[in-house]
Simulated scan of single mutants.
Amino acid sequence: MTRKRRSFTAEFKLEAASLVLDQDYSIPEASRSLAVGETVLRRWVKQLQQERSGCTPPGKALTPEQKRIQELEARVNRLEREKAILKKATALLMSDELERTS
């Protein structure tokens, strides 16, 4: 019988990590009260510390500021890809036009 893997929202992770960082709970206390593993709570605490220091995480962000940064970075990447495609298309159209006029 397989166990279903639990998933947690970013808000829950933020609140859990905040218990440890802001409300002086120990990791074992917080993990028991929230019924989550100590290892995962340590990971969330570490991620929140990094986000508060300005580092953008590779995975889903916990803080609203980092979420916004990730959204903007994704948008910039998409726009840069579109720009590269348009440059290639323009170059192809220009070369076709030059061949026709020659």
Rank of each mutant, 00 (worst) to 15 (best):
A74H: 15
I85S: 00
E73A: 06
Q50V: 05
K83T: 11
P57H: 00
E73Q: 13
K67E: 14
E71P: 00
K46Q: 03
P57F: 04
E65T: 14
L93N: 10
E80G: 00
Q49P: 02
V40C: 11
A89T: 11
R81Y: 12
A84M: 13
P58G: 01
R81A: 11
E80V: 12
E71D: 12
E71M: 13
R42Y: 06
T90C: 08
V40N: 08
A91S: 06
E51V: 01
E71V: 11
R78G: 06
L48H: 03
K60P: 12
T63N: 07
K83P: 00
V40I: 15
N77H: 12
A89E: 15
K88H: 04
L41E: 01
E51K: 05
R81L: 09
L62I: 03
L48C: 02
S53E: 15
R68D: 09
N77I: 07
R68I: 11
T90F: 07
L92W: 10
R42W: 04
S53K: 15
E82P: 03
A61Q: 01
I69Y: 01
A84F: 08
V45Q: 05
A89P: 00
A61Y: 03
S95E: 14
A89R: 15
L93R: 09
E71W: 09
A61W: 00
M94E: 10
L41W: 01
L41F: 05
P64G: 09
P57T: 03
M94H: 00
K87T: 09
K46W: 03
E73H: 04
A84I: 12
L41C: 03
S95D: 06
A91C: 04
R52V: 00
S53R: 13
A89W: 11
R75Y: 14
